[in-house]
Design a protein around this nucleic acid. Structure first.
Lengths: 360, 360
DNA sequence: CCCCCAAATTTGATCGATCAAATTTTGTGC
DNA sequence: GCACAAAATTTGATCGATCAAATTTGGGGG
């Protein structure tokens, strides 16, 4: 038995195609009695309208596109993983689907947009990283294609910029600030920061939170001494942490879990005492390290880390996009914020006592 | 200016719709001269056929579906990440797109199949894990929907089973076997195995490779002593490794990088000497640990690991699916293997000397 | 009981492609 | 030059939905 269509259902029910269509798309236009009858038949026949036919007529594919980046560093990639899952879930429950694509570069990405818009008729895109003076955003904006970015817009100098388009981001500075405050509460004073040596504005933002918190606590003069930058690797974290330790840091806030992992490994066996703050930071009085992104590695090793509310970010992005695409007379409902900065939260953990001195 | 359509292009060129359609879908039916002329016009107008219209007529969406699992353990999740990327890339260059979806359970997954087939007209599915006596495979098989599985079929008892459907898998046993052989070559003899305590057939397979290699090397009598099973966490790895060490193991092959990470952490500071094989395994003569999946964490920490050729697996899956969906008269070309077991390879690494004794 | 207006329902056209069949063009042999 | 098949091209119908306009139904007032 072939799949039911509007026409087949209509003749069975002795009503017209349009009535059934109205039951689904404009129920108020149908008399309650018929509506019930039609709904029952729809359920009985397991009828589901064809997306292709609908798209052909309405020019809506109910599909968003998202670029998949090559898995560079799976440690941090885990964040995007969670984001993608949450996005899919949110899209699905809003009646949208997600289409994946790959691109070699940002220019290629724009080429893919063009293709996907023409061919698949995608209704919008989700960008998962914003670059300074982002050409992709500009292209989409000019073309009038709905899109939302996970990441704030940055101007060419790496400063937070104003933009028309929708975005959601996590307030990195607030995250490092909270991390510093947690460490201060634990009795630390000489709190270092280990960041990236790239000009990445995201990194600069995270560093700023540390500076702000340190200054507010009256340790502003330590800022020039206790900040270090390196490449975003475990080895870089180890080297950087050693440097900060030699400068007297008893705790380190890092820009990533990779760095934090390196720092943790390095400091695990460092001279006892050197990292002992007023109050012990954890078993064995080891240095306190805080990472960023709260990746599974951090969870596995008992590393404190700043957690981004990516699920919430994803849900909001879908909310904004679907609102934008909704039928116009939505004046009644409150539109979601087109620009939203979410606060992260620090996950405090006690390091796994795996290799604690004296254990076997 | 609106997007060009077959009709608009046709009237411009003073040929019929069908001729242009033929140029794209059956070039041999068109006289070379007209073909050139049409192709030039297509390129000039940047014409791209609408997937929705095409799908409506041909009942082909050029779209595969794949379920996204919640990111449970990002350490191992990184493998699926790479797989997904490779899949997207391969699909894209074959002219297909990938649609994501979420499901709460395997039953819900089948419900989603039904929906996606009816509504979006997906052409096939890719399953990324096979369970013993898999109900999803059975459903797809019965319905005649094209699909391919990343993972071998297992019968209800957890043994490798025969199946009609297409699948690709990585030979886990061959991987652990190779790992053991590598360790043997390094001079180790008492090589332990640390696996999962779940009845998971994938884990059983990996354990078997170890047993096989140990037996072949004449250490068969050690097998009952040097094998241990625990939960798949870093903590489990630490505990398990300690146990195996106490039984005299000088090296451990693990079922996952999580376990290996725990083992490595634990043994990093273990009694010197206890883990020193005939030939030093690495700096400081520490125990040799081999993980599984070659996740970024392993790379970051210098942990040896068994690497799965997921990219190749992904490409093959797309090859099989596209072949299945290709126009029937493909008798001329060699069909790709519908069932394929790929060999993994051991990535040998020297542990990062982060916390080597005597470093600062 | 009829007229009128609003509510409910139906009809015909359309989105943009492909399929199947009809038509025109081309080429060959005599 | 002509008949005739093969090659090339065109025409009309169709996939399954929605839009816009036309038609039918129903209820209230005079």
């Amino acid at each position: 038995m072939p799949r039911p269509t509007l026409a087949s259902l209509a003749s069975e029910l002795a009503v017209s195609r349009q009535t059934i269509s109205n039951v689904l798309n404009a129920p108020h236009k149908v008399k309650p009695a018929t509506r019930e009858r039609v709904l029952a038949a729809i359920a009985a026949a397991d009828y589901r309208p064809s997306a292709a036919a609908r798209q052909l007529r309405t020019q809506r594919s109910m599909n968003f596109g998202i670029r998949l980046y090559p898995a560079t560093d799976g440690i941090n990639g885990a964040v995007l993983d969670r984001f993608l899952h949450a996005l899919t879930e949110a899209a699905q429950s809003a009646g949208y689907r997600l289409t994946l694509f790959c691109a070699d570069s940002d220019e290629d990405e724009v080429r893919q947009y063009e293709q996907l818009l023409d061919v698949a008729g995608l209704d919008g895109f989700i960008l998962t990283s914003s670059t300074p003076d982002d050409a992709r955003s500009r292209w989409l904006q000019e073309r009038g294609t709905p899109f939302a970015v996970f990441g704030r817009p940055w101007d060419a100098d790496g400063h937070s910029a104003a933009a028309e388009h929708a975005w959601v981001d996590v307030d990195g500075a607030a995250g490092t600030e909270a991390a510093v405050n947690m460490l201060l509460a634990q009795g630390h004073a000489r709190i270092g920061f280990l960041g990236w040596h790239t000009g990445n504005p995201v990194g600069a933002d995270r560093r700023q939170g540390w500076e702000r918190a340190m200054t507010a606590a009256g340790y502003g003069r330590d800022v020039p001494v206790l900040g270090a930058e390196t490449e975003d690797t475990v080895a870089g974290g180890a080297t950087g942490a050693a440097l900060l330790a030699s400068r007297g840091a008893t705790a380190v806030v890092c820009s990533s879990d990779s760095l934090a992992l390196g720092a943790m490994e390095k400091l695990r066996e460092a001279r006892p005492g050197a990292f002992r703050p007023g109050q012990p930071a954890g078993p064995g009085g080891r240095a306190a390290i805080v990472g960023f992104d709260d990746t599974p590695v951090a969870a596995a090793l008992g590393l404190s880390s700043v957690a981004q509310p990516v699920e919430e970010a994803a849900r909001h992005i879908i909310r904004v996009l679907t609102h934008e695409l909704a039928a116009t007379p939505a004046a009644a409902i409150v539109p979601p914020a087109r620009q939203l900065l979410l606060a992260p939260r620090v996950v405090e953990r006690i390091p796994l006592p795996l290799a604690a001195p004296g254990s076997d």
